[in-house]
Design a binder for these strands. Sequence first.
DNA 1: GAGCGAATTGAACGCTCGTTCAAGAACGGG
DNA 2: CCCGTTCTTGAACGAGCGTTCAATTCGCTC
Lengths: 204, 204
Amino acid sequence: MSPAIDTRTKIVMAAMDLFWTKGFNSTSIADILSRTQLNAGSLYHVFPGKQDVLIAVLEAYRDGLYENLVDPAWEGVDDPVERIFALLARYRWLIVETDCTYGCPIGSLALELHEADPVVRDLLAVNFTGWVGAIRRCLDEAGERLPVDVDKQALAEFVLTTMEGGVMQARTHRDVAYFDRGVAALRDHFDMLLARAAQRPAMA
Amino acid sequence: MSPAIDTRTKIVMAAMDLFWTKGFNSTSIADILSRTQLNAGSLYHVFPGKQDVLIAVLEAYRDGLYENLVDPAWEGVDDPVERIFALLARYRWLIVETDCTYGCPIGSLALELHEADPVVRDLLAVNFTGWVGAIRRCLDEAGERLPVDVDKQALAEFVLTTMEGGVMQARTHRDVAYFDRGVAALRDHFDMLLARAAQRPAMA
DNA sequence: GAGCGAATTGAACGCTCGTTCAAGAACGGG
DNA sequence: CCCGTTCTTGAACGAGCGTTCAATTCGCTC
């Protein structure tokens, strides 16, 4: 294996962590270098500039969505609706684990980069789309348990909305309860949808 | 009127706009100075440092919540539930008006400032609390139209969640439709709650 | 209009940032 | 073992940042 690839991996992993905890603008190249024990030349040998590190980080999130986030959350959970809440529970765990300082890496970057160039913005959007796609699969699998007139794509996006909004409030107030109440409201929403579908089956 | 107050106002107004469009870290003191046609000394005569400008901006948002945001949105709307969606419609208008680059100033700052000091974080939280409080009033006013077992505080927070999540996705995808679908899902939620309350009145 | 504190001027400072690059080390095929 | 390529070293640079401050002007009071 080429050593440059190893260097690249080290940089991307360090940058993922730093961009997550400190944000993109507040993370300096020096931060990445001291974390990886590399020199500036090595980084610039692999990446043309700081923004290209960001792009690599966003690609890593995109490519690792299932491996690093979704599959672990769904382990041992088979019911498609419960899988949605299992994923949200994973975020709850992250919030608690970080003493309520957790912010969704993609969400934070999306709001921080106000005038992101098209490549970066596309990658942010693609990350959201991938996340929503995972939820969408659950909803499709739930099939007729949901009312037929429900827009499943919109509902999947609404799950992301709940997660991001809940994370934002939990972090700002330094209190998971804000996240929990958001998830509870979403649970109410699903309960009402499931009840409506059971009451008026698709056979009508 | 003391000239320093005028200077202060000019700085706060310019900073509100700049922090909103560029973010806090990406806005330089020089940006504020060129926007206000002031010199560095004048700014530092009024504010000890950049962070104090941020604090003043957050206080301005807090103090102007009703005057600048809520009251205009509610003009001509009397029904408490419709007022909630009127406020969301106001955000929709902001998104469209800014070509889908709009981000909620408070939400953006909340996610950008990863290690904000306590004063700043408190002000961010207070701004959220104020916004949620305005929604809460509507829900209280709606009274028995909502099921008695509904946690009105949590529901008000859920409205904020929907707004922030919708704004985030609309901006990232550069498409208001993401916001619209989030609001539509929230409307569904309210419709189901109202129907449930009508079905099983509080008199039980 | 003299006197004085408040407010403004704008050049300068020290620091950190992203980036560059000439020099050297490590590696691998023949 | 040699040579060309790939990768690393780390000092240096220029630009931009937040901040300072001695000098100056403004505006009010008596």
